[in-house]
């Protein structure tokens, strides 16, 4: 890993300016700060920490993201307070699964790339532009992912100011992006619960018609099922899950009190005797 530790210093004057030539993008500005692709290694030698299950659903007013707090490395629980729902900016959330190291680094990259664009260009990057930045970050990560480490998959949620609605995008390992109408789910528990979303939509109602607390309750039940069926997904017994919503007014963090109220609805299901 080669990271230049020197602070940035203006180089030789270029074209009469005392400062170095302008970077075309944040990616170019920090191109030399990225770690080089590691030499081929046996993935079994690398103890990599993974985030597990994250969920994004639309609700009446925006998009809700919920994630468990567990991060695992092989069979070990590395951390039980992981924050897997990351605020990229005031209209965009990213829920991450997979390689924790790469996901956090790329989240920081995206936060800076979006604000760099806003500050230099004096306008907000378009939603389409942001979604493409995420695609590029995943595609750039492919050489690492092909070696069996560093793969991560995000679900990106945004409030689209042009259409006044929440939108959800999920990605494949090469950076292809897909927009989903109702929900997105990623991580080790995702495949275990994917069908349950459809069941809820068909038998109850679409998530987009639910109020925030109703959608939150459904998400917590789904996360609970994921924790039951997937060894890597954490339950609620020790630490509250993390939930954030994106609405017209920006990011709304679900306070612990509201979360506890929603959890009470989950644990009152018959033959469940979980936490107090």
């Amino acid at each position: 890993m080669t990271v230049d530790p020197r602070p940035w210093q203006p180089g030789a004057p270029a074209g009469g300016s005392p400062f170095p030539p302008r970077a075309r993008s944040f990616a170019e500005l920090v191109a030399d700060l990225w770690p080089a692709a590691p030499p081929p290694a046996d993935p079994a030698d690398v103890l990599e920490t993974h985030g597990t299950t994250v969920i994004a659903v639309k609700f009446d007013g925006g998009v809700l993201n919920v994630g468990d707090r567990r991060a695992t490395a092989n069979m070990a629980v590395m951390f039980d307070r992981a924050e897997k729902v990351i605020v990229l900016d005031d209209t965009t959330l990213m829920a991450v699964s997979g390689s924790f190291a790469r996901a956090m680094e790329i989240a920081r990259y995206l936060q800076h790339a979006f604000s760099y664009y806003r500050r230099t260009e004096l306008q907000e990057m378009s939603l389409e532009g942001k979604i493409s930045e995420v695609s590029r970050a995943i595609a750039n990560n492919l050489p690492m992912a092909l070696q069996g480490i560093g793969a991560f998959l995000p679900v990106v949620s945004a409030y689209d100011p042009r259409t006044n609605e929440g939108r959800i995008f999920f990605y494949d390992g090469m950076g292809a992006r897909f927009e989903t109408a109702e929900f997105g789910v990623a991580g080790s528990g995702a495949e275990r619960i994917r069908g349950a979303f459809d069941y809820i939509i068909r038998t109850r109602k679409p998530f987009r018609e639910m109020a925030l607390d109703e959608a939150l309750r459904e998400c917590l039940i789904l996360l609970d099922i994921a924790a039951d069926l997937d060894a890597a997904t954490g339950g609620f017994a020790k630490v509250l899950p993390v939930a954030k919503a994106i609405t017209r007014d920006g990011v709304l963090e679900i306070e612990p009190e509201r979360m506890r109220r929603a959890l009470a609805g989950v644990t009152s299901l018959p033959d469940r005797a979980r936490m107090a």
Binding site: F19, R108, R119
Partner: peptide, 15 residues
């Protein structure tokens, strides 16, 4: 030019 140089330094360093 100064504004951009300031933003460049801040974002490189912040990242």
């Amino acid at each position: 030019t100064t504004r951009i140089a300031a933003i460049d330094f801040a974002h490189r360093e912040g990242f």
